[in-house]
Amino acid sequence: MKKTKKLAAFLAASSLAMVISGCSSSEQNSSGSTTNKSINLLNVSYDPTRELYEEFNKSFIKEWKDETGQTVKIQQSHGGSGKQGRAVIDGLKADVVTLALAYDIDEIAANRNLINKDWQEELPDHSSPYTSTIVFLVRKGNPKSIHDWNDLVKKGVSVITPNPKTSGGARWNYLAAWGYADRKYQGDQAKIKDFMKKLYNNVEVLDSGARGSTTTFTERQIGDVLIAWENEAYLSLKELGEDKFEIITPSLSILAEPPVAVVDKNAKAKGTEKVAKAYLEYLYTDEGQEIAAKNYYRPRNEKILEKYKDHFPNLDLIKIDDFGGWQKAQKEHFSDGGTFDSIYTPKN
């Protein structure tokens, strides 16, 4: 009988050993990066940057090879900004993170010293090499004649925007609308909240991510207006037909600053600090800025911005600092019991 017990343990152990053997093989993958021959870099990013980094990575790989003779392989991971931030905290070995909001990088920095606390000072412009803003995408001909935020709260206008609780982009949408109402009602909290409530009562589908909302609006043809990143709006024009939609720029919007940072602890462990830093710095070079502009992100570089000014109309932009920074904005508006929740809380 003792034998059978041993056999049972052996069977269970061996089946799990098969799983663990899988991990040793994958380990080799990552440890192989420390050799001088080629180096692996993992960029953990959010959804709308796929096209941007696909082009940017090619350019950087060439640049790095020319300069150092070293081959660098760049792996990309995309997903919702919050989800990606969480994955890095939970052990996804990212060398650099390029996310939708500073709040998500702050969260990573707050855990196990993965990122230096003062990461925002390490690169120019608050560590955000490109910016964007929030605009409207409407159907061709603008049948509901939507021109500004106050047109979105009208009766019978159907709005598509993602859920600010699950989507980083949606938080920018929310704050831009809030900023408009704040100016319109001169800070009257009750009136602002009423405006926001009307706006979100017009929302027909609250997708969990920005790309989901775009699909709902373009493919399912639901809604009269999509609140979207400027870069997403241009991309959907390009990908899904300029003859079907047009972009409307509101009178006031928000300066969205998607931040980037080196995940110091991971980079140190993998020996990729130098290349990771160079990678992010390359975003600020003329080449990097040009690629960002081509992918409809507003470059920081004035000259390149001027070159692409047809895509980037001037408009009144409020900043996240007007809300007291991301930590405060998150707490006030998006945490449980925040202003966004109160929109959907039924009055008893």
Binding site: C23, S26, E27, D90, K93
Partner: peptide
């Protein structure tokens, strides 16, 4: 990394989550 066996695994440099295992 923040989990029950997170420290143990990182000490032995074993990656389970976000890879094949």
């Amino acid at each position: 990394a923040e989990g029950l066996f997170g420290d143990l695994l990182s000490n032995y440099n074993v990656q389970i989550i976000f890879s094949l295992p």
